[in-house]
């Protein structure tokens, strides 16, 4: 069953067409990385899912039930974490979680659950007002309020974008704890995080989904037949030998060795054999796997 399905979704702001015929399928239980540059339309998509803005046309379904702007019940299945969460300054974390449970009509064992949730996100159950919290603490509270009613899907809109490295690590650690137990729709432009937590990614570019697959498949698909070679000789000597080979399309000195792109028709070991024949003592001969960042840049650089 799909947790979230979007069909031919469109949204314009005045003359700017922000979301163009967007189609998405998020499977139940997966962590889906929704990545794109700033302004690609990620937040707009999330706002449309949450009915914070009106769609022009298209269809959004949550667990196979269509989402309508005026309908509120479907939101009980969603936990939402915004990029920069803002809370009422006069409340403390406990008050806000109580408010959330109350709104979700779910106040059984509330005291125990609130304390448990505050512990889960490493926020002490103190009486400090939220206005005195750091950004990282507010973000952890945002995660707590998104999870407190045990939603079926967690929608996160760039939750680490405004955080320092420690805050970012804390959020990613929470996500890793949730992985496998919750469907997570994780929008971000920080691609290191995506590699760590996501099962599948979709790249949104100028309002359109231009690529979607598992990270493993994408790495395989975008493997550009690149090899990094380190030998006992200096990189310059190694480079001079590689230059003579017909198996190589491109090459450059990189780190303490040479990175080459092999010809499409040559075997991946052919260059290694040639170098051994040239009496080059090879220390390492490693396939260069593309990072999500490289794939992303390759697809989104016009």
């Amino acid at each position: 069953m799909n947790a979230l399905t979007i069909n031919d979704l469109n949204k314009s702001f005045k003359d700017v067409h922000v979301i163009k015929d967007l189609n998405l399928d998020i499977k139940q239980g997966e962590v889906y990385g929704f990545i794109g540059k700033n302004g690609a339309g990620k937040t707009t998509t999330i706002n449309l899912i949450l009915s914070l803005i009106h769609k022009d046309n298209g269809k959004i379904q949550l667990f196979e039930e269509e989402v309508f702007f005026t309908e509120q019940n479907y939101k009980k299945k969603i936990g939402y974490v915004p990029d920069v969460p803002v809370f009422p300054s006069y409340m403390n974390a406990y008050d806000y979680l109580m408010f959330t449970l109350d709104i979700f009509n779910d106040i059984d064992n509330y005291d125990e659950r609130i304390k448990e949730m505050l512990e889960f996100v490493s926020l002490d159950n103190n009486k400090k007002r939220i206005s005195s919290y750091s950004r990282g603490m507010k973000q952890r509270l945002a995660i707590a309020q998104a999870l407190i009613h045990n939603p079926d899907i967690l929608i996160m809109d760039e939750p680490t974008s405004a955080l320092d490295p420690q805050g970012r690590k804390d959020v990613i650690d929470i996500l890793l704890k949730l992985k496998g137990n919750k469907t997570i729709f994780y929008s971000t432009h920080i691609l290191d995080d995506v590699e760590r937590v996501c099962d599948r990614i979709g790249i949104l570019h100028k309002g359109q989904l231009i690529l979607e697959d598992t990270i493993e498949n994408l790495k395989h698909e975008f493997y550009a037949r690149r090899v990094h070679i380190v030998s006992k000789s200096s990189p310059d000597i190694l480079l001079s030998k590689i230059e003579k080979s017909d198996t190589v399309k491109k090459f450059r000195r990189e780190n303490n060795g040479v990175t080459v792109q092999l010809n499409d028709d040559s075997r991946s070991n052919a260059l290694l054999e040639e170098l051994i024949n040239m009496e080059e003592e090879i220390v390492s001969y490693t396939q260069v796997v593309p990072t999500v960042e490289e794939i992303f840049l390759q697809k989104t650089n016009d």
Binding site: N47, L50, S51, L52, T70, Q72, N73, K75, K76, I78, Y80, P82, V84, P85, V86, F87, P88, T100, I103, F104, A142, Q145
Partner: peptide, 14 residues
Amino acid sequence: NKGLLPLILSKPIN
């Protein structure tokens, strides 16, 4: 004005 609305209206509030 304070930016509280997105979190409020992301909940089932008419």
